[in-house]
Write a protein that binds this DNA or RNA. Sequence first.
DNA 1: TGCCAGGCCTTCC
DNA 2: GGAAGGCATGGC
Length: 278
Amino acid sequence: MLEIKVNDFNLDDTVTCGQIFRYTKEDDNSYTIILKDRVINVRKDNDILYVDSNNSDDLESVVVKYFDLDRDYKKINEIILNNDESLDEVVGSCTGLKMINSYPFETTISYIISANNSVSSIKKSVDKISEAYGDKIEFRNKTYYLFPTPNQLKNVSAADYRNYSVGFRDKYIENMVKVVNDDCLYLDSFFDLATTNSLDELMKQQGIGPKVASCILLFAYQKFDVFPIDTWVKKVMKDKYNIEGEKNIRKQAQKVFGDYSGIAIQYMFHYGRNKFTK
DNA sequence: TGCCAGGCCTTCC
DNA sequence: GGAAGGCATGGC
């Protein structure tokens, strides 16, 4: 069992705030999460993170990177609050929330599925696709399935995807899988591209608009200067600033949060989803 | 039942 | 370039 000393880390919020689709909450309040190449179980007790996995190779660095534990979020939150004190309540409700460092292919497909969909439905579709095509892993007497590789999805048709409740997004998934298989550098290229260029490139693909592209860049490429504006963020923006309309919201976010707009908006998403669903 | 969900596409002006 | 309507599916 690996132990990692952490501070300023809220495991619950980080896992459940809508950026991770493949997790299970266990009876002991730990989380079992399926990563790219392994399954981990994480539990936090005070300032220690206990990590177990079926694969211990580089486990600490994998976990630190996945939860973005090396970044100074206190500093980022100060910058956000310096720009707008009225977000005190929003930022305060997200103390210790980290931006996940996910995997480009899985993230891209997952967020194509996310369009006009609910978090619980997205989770189910991603799980079903993984079960159908991904590698099987045994961990703690249970069976898990990794998200499939592009090659494993190579011959899957749009009609096949319909079996996994993805609806009209079937053809978008098929297209993206083909793009990635035809150009093995396609997804890696975004690491070195500026945010605006990455957005333009991603939005050339079917089923990817500004919102989906922003989420992909935020959660898989750590590009924080994006604006993933969804229905919850709109509610908070209306509530906090009395601002409506996507264009106006974007303008406000850019003005106030600048390079950290993606994080500020994730905070609003988390805050809004909790506030308006209770 | 009807409305909504981490929206995007097509059509039409 | 912007507004309006359609879209699969599951949850509430």
